[in-house]
Amino acid sequence: MKFLVSRYNPDSDAAPYMQAFEVEVPRGMMLRDALLDIKRQDESFAFRHSCGEGVCGSDGVNVNGINKLACITPVSELKEPIEVRPFPGRPIIRDLVVDMTQFYQQYKAVKPWLVRNDPMPEQEILQSPQDRDKLDGLYECILCGCCSTSCPSFWWNPEKFHGPQALLTAWRFLADSRDQATDERLDALEGPYKLFRCHTIMNCVEVCPKGLNPTKAIGHIKALMLKNAV
């Protein structure tokens, strides 16, 4: 099958360009396998990857216009020619490798850790199965960045708008019955940008390879803010 992959080496190229490769596609081949085959043909081709099973979040790329994790995307589901580009809106370091610094900064900005003011019990902090269920669909995020880098609001304001990933994480801690920083978390999300730049465009939901729903999480945060404001 025919692949067009984006190439860019800052040492030698003025701008990114597309290069064609022919890859033999056996049954069950994943996009990552195809990219590895291209690397076999040309070892200078660079992309990130590691686990090969959709849990490390390294190999998010833009395929035929949609952000996907290469290792769990069957080639058979893609239309030829398959065009593989780096995530949109991020500075390109080389080929498919982009600079994700701002994405990580937004993640860190929502204080992504459990806050507990009470002294810790000797054993576990108790949590009912029903309360634990509220974290399902939130904690599984693998920080791949597929969502935030397909969000138009994040493209325009990556330094000010948290983006869907970070907001999903914010809600993951707001929703945790063990967390004791609800007010601080909500206060920190006030203002026109951090949260409220989300215009419910839903790109993020469509692309999440883990089937998570950042838009819904954002909705929950807004609802909780309203409730607390009353």
Binding site: E124, S128, P129, R132, L135, Y139
Partner: peptide, 17 residues
């Protein structure tokens, strides 16, 4: 227990453990 205090979302039993 320390992991749990650090925020790990362990699955739970009916008694909350």
């Amino acid at each position: 227990y320390e992991l749990e205090h650090n925020g790990v979302p362990f699955s739970r039993l009916d008694d909350g453990k």
